[in-house]
């Protein structure tokens, strides 16, 4: 709490710095262009394209969370934000992976 500037509350969303925003913006722009180029150029195999666009999406997600949402573990509130995000991640994995697992199983047993 002591190294915390009270006149500039950050609400657990980190300090506001132009450089970080610009870095996040440029990184996301490049990754977006790579994703679209991989699909539109039609030079890669289907599996390679899937790998490229998913890795690109995951990096973009991390960059946006760190550079724009400014999630951090520097303050107590920052840690609470990160923990609740991780918990939401657990629920999302259960919902999405669970749905896909059930439906693919269903399709498999209806076809065989």
């Amino acid at each position: 709490m002591h190294h915390h500037d009270l006149s500039q509350p950050d609400y657990g969303t980190g300090q506001k710095k132009l450089g970080i925003y610009v870095f996040g913006f440029i990184t996301c722009s490049i990754l977006t262009l790579i994703s679209f180029w991989a699909v539109m150029s039609e030079t890669f195999a289907k599996n390679d394209i899937l790998i490229i666009i998913f890795i690109s999406a995951i990096i973009q997600f991390i960059v946006q969370v760190v550079c724009f949402l400014r999630l951090n573990t520097q303050t107590e509130q920052g840690r609470m934000n990160v923990m609740s995000l991780l918990f939401t991640g657990v629920i999302l994995v259960a919902v999405i992976a669970g749905s896909l697992w059930i439906m693919w199983n269903l399709a498999y047993f209806m076809a065989h």
Binding site: T32, V39, A57, Q64, F68
Partner: peptide
């Protein structure tokens, strides 16, 4: 607003790019 852009990353990757392959 930032959250909406994060959701859009997954919309364009899963809906449009995967659909466009």
């Amino acid at each position: 607003w930032n959250f909406l852009d994060i959701v859009w990353i997954f919309v364009f990757t899963i809906v449009y790019l995967m659909g466009g392959i």
